[in-house]
């Protein structure tokens, strides 16, 4: 328990104090071309296409709980 606590504390406090990517280094990450999903309505629609045609479902990324429609 103590070990877990120490690991968590070091991890959290350490990362808090020294994030390895500084805020001023995040220009590239903030570029719209680095978004996993740039357009919500369009991405949701593609998930629906996949779910309707394929046996798999879930872990598509993005928010929401999907729709149970067939």
């Amino acid at each position: 328990m103590k070990f877990t606590f120490i690991v968590f504390t070091l991890l959290l406090s350490g990362c808090q104090l020294e994030p390895w990517v500084k805020p001023y280094e995040r220009d590239n990450l903030a570029d719209p071309i680095m978004a996993f999903s740039r357009d919500a309505a369009s991405s949701t629609y593609m998930h629906h296409v996949y779910q309707a045609r394929e046996g798999a479902r879930g872990a598509e990324g993005g928010g929401g709980g999907g729709c149970g429609c067939n």
Partner: peptide, 10 residues
């Protein structure tokens, strides 16, 4: 983690 991590539970 200084906004380097994001946890989403739904």
């Amino acid at each position: 983690f200084g906004d380097l991590s994001s946890l989403n539970i739904g």
